[in-house]
Amino acid sequence: MIERSDLLLVSSAAELGSLAAAARQLDLAPPAVSKRLAALESRLGLRLFHRSTRRLQLTPHGEAFLAQARSLLQGFEQLQAQLTERHDEPRGLIRLCSSFGFGHAWLGPLLAQFHAAYPQVQVQLHLREQLPDLRAAGFDAAVWLWAPRDPNVVTRRLASNRRIIVGAPAYLQRAGVPQALDELAQHACLVVSENDDQPATWRLQDLSPRGAAVTMRVNGPLASNSGEVVRDWALAGHGLMLRSLWDVHEHLRSGRLQQVLPRYAMLDADVHWVLPPRAPNSSVPRRVRLLQQQLIQALATPPWLAPPHQQPGPASAPPAPRRRR
């Protein structure tokens, strides 16, 4: 007999591409996952995955199994949602996905408030570097910092946000305040590296009337795939960084950071509510709708968009000296 846990196992392994990653997602020991998959294949008399030391790839039989597994899992979710809707008080589980920085700084506290309002609703928040396939991974929704390009998902903007260029007063006093984009080449630019194979680029928008998009190649001595690490380097005076307002607005208010080149910003950083694709005639569970409504209300006036207080000091830093060509 095929059980729901078998369907979840195959779905997770296919989406994550590794049995070890599937074990972490399902909160199981890796040997137990391997044993369960082998037992399932033995019962079916079919091999569902090609295994190697580096890759886990679906066989044609596995592709067919996965398609049916996803359909059945969605059916389970619909049945559970329909039964849960019969309660006057919302209850049940919400599996939510978000990025590490925003999830820790903003979403975590908002979810605690939601739980206080609806104590019968359980919320599991999973923080990721990359937005997964929400449907395959079994997530009810995601809160993400840009709109996914997948036309099958449903998105709604929760809050405006932009990324700006900032530096610490100590760095600006030492290196000078850049007055034009081409002066970034003379500065230590701290980079959040999302792809090691690509050169570091900042895709900026000129905010002046009729301003155009500009792509700048930047470089510097320090880079990390962690935005929080890069932020801490900037606070310590190691260089300039391009970072979201939600992460730096308090440091701008306190004067620990100062915005430079305010005419330019990266705009594709709004906070979005993302729902996985659903089957026809399938409604979003009430508990998920309530969470969406609460987040919309909480972020209707984002605190990070309030103008920072004027701070003395960094504004008087000297401009960056131009190199002779």
Rank of each mutant, 00 (worst) to 15 (best):
P277C: 12
E3F: 08
L79M: 10
N161F: 04
Q186R: 14
P119F: 06
N225A: 08
A29Y: 05
F114P: 11
G176N: 02
A32G: 08
G167E: 01
H126S: 14
A142R: 08
R51D: 10
L28W: 14
Q293N: 05
W246R: 02
L96E: 05
A306W: 00
N225G: 03
T201K: 04
A105N: 02
V230I: 15
L83G: 11
S52V: 09
P90G: 00
P30E: 11
G103D: 06
A81P: 04
W202M: 01
P277N: 15
E41M: 08
A112Y: 12
V214A: 01
S282A: 15
Q78E: 13
A117Y: 00
R128C: 05
A279S: 15
P119N: 06
F139M: 10
A141L: 10
G108D: 12
A39H: 11
S316K: 03
S244H: 06
W106E: 04
V214G: 00
L125K: 04
T155K: 06
H87P: 01
Q122N: 05
R253F: 04
G227W: 13
A317N: 03
W202R: 02
A170R: 09
H238T: 01
S99P: 01
G138P: 12
P262V: 11
L72V: 12
V260L: 00
I2G: 00
L46S: 13
A147N: 08
L37W: 07
M216A: 04
S193D: 13
P169Y: 12
V274K: 01
L48P: 08
S244P: 02
S5E: 14
V274D: 04
P308D: 04
S208Q: 15
D247C: 00
A279T: 11
R95A: 08
R217N: 02
L145Y: 00
L73I: 10
L242E: 13
Y171A: 00
L305K: 04
D206L: 11
P90Q: 02
L26G: 11
R203W: 12
A265G: 05
R256K: 06
L19A: 02
R149E: 15
D197E: 15
P280M: 10
L252R: 01
E77H: 13
D133S: 13
